[in-house]
């Protein structure tokens, strides 16, 4: 670095923008995307407070206050849906991150490049299988009359299990399928972070006589902390948003399983699909977003109290 460091003076905004023209240009698609799909529709949330009709439009329809929210409470669904959505997401976040880090670390320790590539590809592939196919595969594995698992049980002389009638098993099944699909993809981020760790740290550790396990414990894992925290924060932001495709295709309309598998998305979808009810579904969506927003703000606030550098904003 040069000996004479010029005093940083804050440039005027326009100048700053002009200086980073190219960077801004590269951001434009993302900015446009968020404006079009996330900010522009915001006023439409007004539907949740109206008795909506097409003729009067979103802002002309009669205002009904919180009437549309009443159903959520009345039907007793609010608590169940919130609980299911949050618990599933917590399980996805906790087990997902642990597994992703473990796999990234293990990949990093594999010396044979060929084997490393192969195993990475094999774990990555399920990510590309559509949820519809996952649902079909699951049905063919799990169903009572012709499913592979029950066929195996019958062949070995056991009694087949009515998997699609037992609500208790489904959290396990859904979490396993989710992890199977997403772990390979998620581990790549951690793997990239490991690649970015200063190699001299490992050399220094080796000179100090650290074993492979100690190098992981004292160099790799601490270096992954910022990535881990940012990823967890991001996922906390969407803790109220369920993986609709997965849940819908695995469970569908099977009411026997709703107690443990119904999340906000699937419930809203059924409601719009069968009820033609845009107002209450918007109300649920709004509840979901506000609750999610509060969660992100809280989580970020906590992280900022602990370590300012790890906070998102």
């Amino acid at each position: 670095m040069a000996a004479k460091v010029p005093v940083e003076r804050r440039k005027p905004l326009l100048r700053q923008l002009a200086d980073s023209k190219i960077l801004l240009l590269m951001c434009v698609p993302a900015i446009v995307f968020f404006i079009v799909f996330n900010y522009a529709p915001l006023p439409g949330a007004w539907i949740a407070f109206t008795n909506f009709n097409y003729r009067d439009g979103i802002f002309g329809s009669p205002f009904v206050g919180f009437k549309n929210f009443e159903f959520l409470i009345k039907s007793g669904q609010l608590w169940l849906l919130t609980r299911n959505t949050i618990l599933y997401n917590l399980a996805f976040i906790i087990f997902g991150n642990i597994l992703q880090i473990a796999i990234a670390v293990m990949l990093n320790e594999i010396r044979s490049t060929f084997f490393k590539k192969i195993s990475q590809a094999a774990m990555f592939l399920p990510f590309f299988i559509s949820a519809v196919l996952v649902g079909v595969i699951a049905f063919n594995l799990l169903n009572y009359d012709t499913g592979a698992i029950n066929a195996l049980i019958k062949q070995t002389g056991g009694d087949p299990i009515k998997i699609y009638s037992v609500a208790g098993i489904w959290p396990l099944i859904i979490i396993m399928v989710h992890l199977w699909q997403s772990t390979g993809y998620g581990s790549i981020v951690y793997f990239a972070a490991i690649m970015g760790i200063d190699r001299s740290l490992y050399e220094a550790a080796a000179i100090d006589g650290a074993s492979a396990w100690q190098r992981i414990r004292y160099v790799t894992l601490p270096s992954l902390k910022p990535t881990f925290i940012i990823l967890v924060l991001f996922s906390l932001g969407s803790i109220m948003h369920g993986n609709f495709g997965l849940f819908w295709n695995l469970v569908g309309n099977n009411a026997a399983l709703f107690k443990t598998t119904d999340i906000i998305e699937t419930s809203v979808y059924r409601m719009v699909l069968t009820q033609n009810n845009f107002t209450t579904s918007t109300a649920v969506g709004l509840y979901q977003s506000l609750f999610g927003f509060a969660l992100v703000m809280t989580a970020n606030w906590i992280v900022r109290r602990i370590n300012k550098d790890y906070a998102l904003f």
Partner: peptide, 21 residues
């Protein structure tokens, strides 16, 4: 139905849980 729409949605929720079973 305007006045009872939210109630019908709630009724639908209950029926769609019990009737198929």
């Amino acid at each position: 139905k305007a006045a009872i729409d939210p109630t019908l949605a709630a009724i639908s929720g209950v029926l769609s849980e019990y009737i198929p079973q």
